[in-house]
Each structure stands twice: as structure tokens, then as C-alpha cells.
Design a protein around this nucleic acid. Structure first.
Lengths: 185, 185
DNA sequence: CGATTATCTTTACACTGTCAAGTTGAGTAA
DNA sequence: TTACTCAACTTGACAGTGTAAAGATAATCG
């Protein structure tokens, strides 16, 4: 929650709210500023224009994303198996994309900007997934397997986000478990 | 190639060129029109504003996409194995995303619009991938396996498009073959 | 107390998409 | 031929956008 007077954080929160409520098209500098109760030129003093503000919003998005992944991990029962843990975390990944589709798109659209803070929190979110792959690495190398699991999950999230495609054989969340099982062998 | 006087096709071609040369930010209605040599209001008579033109560009993108997939399939040697064929087609999928990143994003961003033509060509492109999964379906059901292969490939394409992420363990095209092999078993 | 500096507002500008009205030119019917 | 029609396109205007410059305001500090 933004402290009153902490305008940068208030602008980011306003941006997140607009993304969830109105989608990516509503995310204009002037509307963000209006929602935060300041003039349209105020953001310029804290961010490098709209591009900078978008990076800030994406950074906050990755932090929230990571927090949800961690919350899912910590909510697993003590006797949960390694596969169930990996599955639960990855399903949170997929559901986050579905629940916050415009934000999710923005997050990964902003990654190429190479902003240090953004890279850092994005990396931290990935580590949560990565550590759940550990039990399945066995004799093979870790990196290629982790990459495969990540790509499968991210692809599933992307294709499941907006609508089933192709319509005749939809990418349903319910079929992700089977897909993941194919991969872990 | 657009015939002179076929303005709709010329506008789409102009849009594709702008996407490749200037990225998504350059794709404005007025710049597309200027590149096609017409006034800024001309596109309105052939498309439903910029949203309609974007759908048209995405539709053309899926057609080109499908053509490249088919070209790769037809270029395989007669003695190529089923895995090599699947791998080759999917690598074309991944490379297309990398070579035409702004277009690739636009294509899948426009899918939720539910435009009939767009859905049709997108489905046709998917079928190319789908038919290469056939040899690996064996006793299991086809749809979940195809979905898994598609999600893995699409996720790989998305993560590989702009830049390696996370930077320390990049999603390299060279590691896709191992990932796919894990999946087909 | 007076000066300074960060924060925010006001104003102006170029650019965007859309709409309404006007222009043009090819085809058509009498 | 002449008048009509109509699709294709242009022109002009409008609200909304991001950005930059300049002004106002208030807190901080010497």
C-alpha cells in the first residue's frame, strides 16, 4: 500500500490498478497521474517519462509475482511430494498470467529494456521455479531441464491467458499436469 | 507483393515493413498510410480503424508464418526421421519469433479479438505443428501431447525472442532440441 | 531569517486516431 | 452526350497523448 506522499509508489499502484481494471490501453501517463491525484506532468520528476514508469510498474509486477509463487510454495503440506510442489508453483505461474494478463504482458515486454532493478526481481522470481526443479535433475545437467520446464510453463501461461487457441483444442489449465509429467519423465 | 491500386494489401505490407524496421511503436495509422502513399484517413475505408488494420496485419503475419513452417517441412530430406522433422519445424517457429519479434507479439496479441479470418489462418498454422506430433502420440491421447509440444515451443520462442532471461542461464535455441527430446520421451 | 532545492503545476507543442465533409473519377443509364 | 451514382480518397477539425519549459510552492538548510 502506498504511503501518502510517496508519489512514485502511488503512481505504480495506480498503474497496476488501471492495468487490471481497464487493460493495457488505459495505461496512459495522464490517467495514471489523475488516478494518483496529481497533474499529468508530476510523474516526470520520479520516472523517466512513460517508458520509465512502465518499467517501474513491471518491476513491481515481478515482485508481486514472486510473492505469489513463494506463498504457494509455503502453503504446501509438509508431506507433499516434489512433483506436487513443482506443479503447484507452476500452476500459480499460469494463473497469475490469466488473472493479470495485461500486467503479465507488460512485465515480459519490458524485460529487454535491461533495467537493472527489473532484471534483478525477474531473476528472483525465476529462482523460485528453478529450485523446484532440483529434485528432478538427477544425472542430467540442471540448466537445460530447468529451461525446458520454464518454457513449457511460460508457453502454457501465454497460450492460456486470453482465450483458448486453437478453439477446437484449447490449452486448458487442467491439462498442464499431464504435460509437466511428460517432461519430468 | 501488393498490386498497385490494391490499397488494403499495400497498407498491410507497409505495416509489416514498419514492424520489422521500427518496431511496434512505429506502427501508427498515419505512418502506415504515409508509407503506402495515401492520406491518413484512407485506411478507414478498408479497415475498421487502427484496430482493424492491426488485425489485418496479424492475419497476414500468420499466413507468412504458416508458409515458413510449410517451407521447412517440405525442405526436409526424404530420409529424415520423425523427430528431425518435428524439430526442424519447431525451430522455424522459434526463429520466426526472433526474426519478426514485434510482428510475432502483435499476432498473438490480436488472437483474442476472435476475428474469423485471423482465427482461421492461426489455426492453419497450428495444424502444421500438430501433424508433426502424430508419429509420437502412440497409445496416449493426441491432444494433451500436442498441447505440451506447442506450449514448450511457444514458451521457448517467447523467452528467446528479445533477449536471454535470466541472463545467467539464457534460453538458447541450441538447447531446444534437448528440451523437445525430454518431451517426446 | 534568507536562500536553495526538490516537488509539483501550468502552459504549450507536436503527434495520434477518429470523425464529418468535401473532392475526384470511373462507371451507368437515359 | 449528359446527368447521376457511388466508391475511393483527401481535407480539415477535434479530443487525447507524451514531453518539455517555465512558474509556483513548500520544506530544508546554512
Amino acid at each position: 500500500m502506498p504511503a501518502r506522499g510517496d508519489l512514485p509508489q502511488m503512481l505504480i499502484e495506480a498503474g497496476l490498478a488501471i492495468l487490471d481494471e481497464e487493460g493495457a490501453e488505459g495505461l496512459t501517463l495522464r490517467r495514471i497521474a489523475a488516478r494518483a491525484g496529481v497533474s499529468h506532468a508530476a510523474p516526470a520528476h520520479h520516472f523517466n517519462g512513460l517508458p520509465g514508469l512502465r518499467i517501474g510498474i513491471a518491476t513491481q509486477g515481478f515482485q508481486d509475482f514472486r510473492r505469489e509463487l513463494i506463498a504457494t510454495r509455503d502453503a504446501q503440506p509438509a508431506d507433499a511430494g516434489a512433483f506436487q510442489r513443482l506443479l503447484a508453483v507452476n500452476l500459480t505461474y499460469i494463473r497469475f498470467a490469466r488473472r493479470h494478463t495485461p500486467l503479465f504482458r507488460l512485465m515480459f515486454d519490458q524485460l529487454p529494456t535491461q533495467d537493472p532493478d527489473l532484471r534483478s526481481v525477474a531473476r528472483a522470481a525465476y529462482v523460485v521455479l528453478q529450485e523446484h526443479c532440483q529434485p528432478f535433475v538427477r544425472d542430467r545437467e540442471a540448466a537445460p531441464f530447468e529451461t525446458a520446464v520454464w518454457a513449457l510453463t511460460h508457453g502454457f501461461a501465454m497460450l492460456n491467458m486470453d482465450q483458448p487457441y486453437p478453439p477446437e483444442s484449447p490449452v486448458q489449465v487442467s491439462s498442464y499436469e499431464d504435460a509437466l509429467r511428460l517432461l519430468v519423465g
